[in-house]
């Protein structure tokens, strides 16, 4: 037992809850567990017995996050949500291979979506590929696989992006986007880049990282990872999302875009997207309760449409300004804006 109160919490993943059915997927389960040789393993019947417990406090749990290994027996592939950017793609879907993210961003909708701060990894990724095989027989698919987590950040443990790269190579009708804030590109740098896999880095100004993103790599680390991915032939997308309003936002974002495009050539990227802060009203109620002192969450957003976001005037000011700034570096046909109706300007 440690004596310092700040260290009284267990380290992350000192406990791993393992669903009984994971025994049927021994290779992946054992691969993941091999990264945590000192963890206490607690057998469970169903991941929801831990993940969906009543009254969990994700804010406190984030001090000592635990891992739950489970078998997904339900739907793998979901239609993309209206609050997500489809980049002009038809047949926009997302898949949840993991639930929750090792990073801790105050504005993240996952806090409102999930009842727990712990992470779930589904070990039966082959079943996800089987679901996708069926869907791909019907039509091409644009699939985001890292919305409800950050797969890149956990790649050393799961190896899942590596498996997706392999799957993409043999399924040209599929386009996969891997959204990340991680600097962990090194985990997949040895793998040949398939043309239908997009690595999408979410970049935020230092002001936002410093104030609202915890345990997240800084801007320079993310930029370096994105540059390295470009050098290795990967298609890279930059996502400036969420755009937040704060004092001096104009100068902060102006300096930020200059810095980003001084370091990443606009010609080397596939495209960019941006979108203002938006979270469903149900989620923000939960998020505000979990983080009562968070400035970004306690801002009095307009909730009249069922989505908490800036009011129409401020939204227009933000969107126009950010678009104008990005346009200084990136041609307009490469800029995607989330406006609530998924239009591309």
């Amino acid at each position: 037992m440690k004596t310092c109160d700040n260290n009284f919490y267990n380290k992350p993943f000192e406990y791993i809850y393992v669903e009984d059915d994971c025994a049927g997927y021994a290779a992946t389960t054992e691969h993941i567990l091999s990264h945590f040789p000192d963890a206490t393993l607690i057998p469970i019947h169903h991941y929801k017995d831990v993940f969906n417990r009543k009254n969990q406090n994700a804010t406190v749990q984030r001090n000592s996050r635990q891992l739950i290994l489970a078998v997904c027996k339900e739907t793998w592939i979901y239609p993309g949500a209206p609050v997500c950017q489809d980049f002009g793609n038809d047949n926009f879907y997302y898949a949840s291979l993991m639930m929750n993210c090792i990073f801790d961003c105050e504005y993240c909708y996952l806090q409102g979506m999930y009842p727990s701060g712990h992470l779930v990894v589904f070990v039966n990724i082959e079943d996800c590929f089987a679901s996708l095989d069926s869907l791909l027989k019907e039509h091409p698919v644009y699939l985001c696989i890292s919305f409800d987590s950050d797969l890149m950040a956990f790649e050393n443990v799961t190896g899942y992006i590596g498996k997706w790269i392999e799957y993409c190579t043999s399924h040209p009708d599929l386009t996969v986007e891997v959204r990340t804030k991680s600097a962990n590109f090194g985990a997949i740098s040895h793998l040949a880049a398939p043309p239908n896999l997009i690595l999408a880095w979410t970049l935020t100004p230092d002001y936002v990282t410093h104030n609202f993103e915890h345990k997240v790599p800084g801007l320079d680390a993310r930029i370096s990872a994105a540059c390295l991915a470009i050098q290795h032939g990967y298609k890279v997308r930059l996502c400036f999302d969420p755009i937040l309003h704060f004092p001096d936002f104009k100068s902060v974002y102006s300096d930020f875009f200059k810095y980003v495009f001084d370091h990443i050539s606009p010609h080397s990227i596939k495209d960019v997207s941006f979108g203002e802060f938006r979270v469903s009203c149900d989620y923000i109620k939960k998020m505000r309760k979990l983080r009562p002192a968070s400035l970004v969450l306690q801002y009095p957003y307009d909730t009249s449409t069922g989505v908490a976001t800036y009011d129409a005037d401020l939204s227009k000011t933000l969107t126009d300004y950010i678009y104008q700034e990005i346009s200084l570096y990136v041609p307009s046909d490469k800029i995607y804006i989330w406006k609530g109706d998924n239009t591309n300007d």
Binding site: M1, N7, Y9, T40, D49, Q61, S64, Q66
Partner: peptide, 11 residues
């Protein structure tokens, strides 16, 4: 089964 959260270090 019920699962208390095991967040705190102990001996």
């Amino acid at each position: 089964y019920y699962y208390p959260d095991m967040l705190y270090s102990h001996n």
